[in-house]
């Protein structure tokens, strides 16, 4: 137990130090990719709550990132609202839509829920593409500003990179607090066995909806940052592929593990850059990695690492659900 915690703490310290030192070693493109990693991780943390902790499959996370991004693009460029305000609008919209989208989860089985969320993603994508008066259609929206804090502009790659890291740190801490609280403990109970959770006073309906809504809200925040990072938004990054990618990230990283999304996003965002020299080979490597991992270690890369570090209590893989009293 202790050796394991020390190993985790040491590794975390090294990684955090490396992240903080990155601007001294990397050029602006490298920082852009690292910022993208941080932004994507936030979206994946949201999906990890829905999928990994509450056990509900969602193919809509990419759509929520898109909603957050478009909220930011439209509110800042068309109406001149300040960025903090767009955080609020994006989070509240995604939270509410996620809540409503969670209702089918109360009635249908997992694969139907995949269809419901898939239909939603398609719908949102069509709106981004076709409602030109609002979204600019395929030509998109440009000129999205980057934040200014205390009169200090965060426009430059290094400054904005630190801003993304700070966002990721704040959200990670909040998420850590949530899953450690007695309240957050119940998400896992609902996933493991809804009937037993109910008999302990967990309002399983409400928890399922909250898991959906909070996950979607974090997707929205990820979108707000993405819009500021790329500064130009069009519909293409928010197709179904984006949702599938986020889902893969969570599963490959290790769904239901706190660090799963961080690792999953490394595989999905950083690895392609490192393997750029291999050309098309990267996609083949990725596909093979996913298949091998799912066949031999459905708990993902974190689960795999945990095997070597002797986990004390491992969460079950996502679909594990018994329906006994």
């Amino acid at each position: 137990m202790n050796a394991r915690n020390i190993a985790i703490a040491a590794l975390s310290a090294v990684v955090i130090a490396a992240l903080l030192a990155a601007p001294y070693a990397l050029k602006s493109y490298g920082l852009y990719i690292l910022s993208l990693w941080a932004v994507t991780t936030i979206g994946a943390i949201g999906l990890n709550l829905t999928l990994g902790y509450a056990g509900q499959i969602s193919l809509a996370q990419g759509a929520f990132v898109g909603i957050g991004a478009y909220c930011t693009a439209i509110l800042t460029t068309k109406y001149g609202y300040p960025l903090p305000f767009t955080y609020l609008v994006a989070f509240v919209s995604c939270f509410s839509i996620g809540w409503v989208l969670g209702y089918p989860a109360l009635r249908v089985e997992h694969h139907y829920l995949a269809f419901v969320t898939l239909a939603f993603t398609t719908l949102v994508y069509l709106i981004f593409r076709n409602e030109e008066w609002l979204t600019g259609g395929v030509s998109g929206i440009g000129g999205i500003p980057r934040p200014v804090m205390f009169g200090y502009s965060l426009r430059a790659p290094a400054e904005f990179y630190y801003f993304c890291l700070a966002n990721l740190a704040a959200i990670s801490l909040a998420f850590w607090g949530l899953i450690r609280s007695p309240w957050g403990r119940a998400f896992v109970a609902v996933r493991e066995n809804p009937v037993r959770a109910l008999s302990l006073g967990v309002d399983t309906r409400r928890y399922t909806l909250i898991a959906f809504a909070l996950g979607a809200g974090l997707g929205g925040i990820s979108g707000v940052l993405l819009a500021q990072l790329v500064q130009f938004i069009d519909p293409s990054p928010f197709s179904l592929t984006a949702s599938l990618n986020l889902l893969l990230m969570v599963v490959v990283g290790g769904s239901g593990y706190f660090f799963g999304p961080f690792v999953g996003a490394i595989v999905a965002v950083l690895l392609p850059e490192w393997l750029r020299f291999s050309g098309g080979l990267y996609l083949i490597c990725y596909a093979i990695l996913v298949m091998v991992l799912m066949a031999f270690c459905p708990t993902g890369l974190i689960g795999l690492a945990g095997r070597f570090l002797k986990p004390v209590s491992k969460p079950a893989p996502v679909p594990a659900r018994e329906q006994t009293t």
């Binding site: 007695p182 309240w183 119940a186 109970a189 493991e192 066995n193 037993r196 006073g201 209590s313």
Partner: peptide, 17 residues
């Protein structure tokens, strides 16, 4: 009625939901 995959402590904490 326990949650077999979770730790004993986590199980106990669930009594306080």
């Amino acid at each position: 009625n326990i949650f077999p995959q979770l730790s004993v402590r986590h199980n106990l904490e669930l009594g306080g939901v």
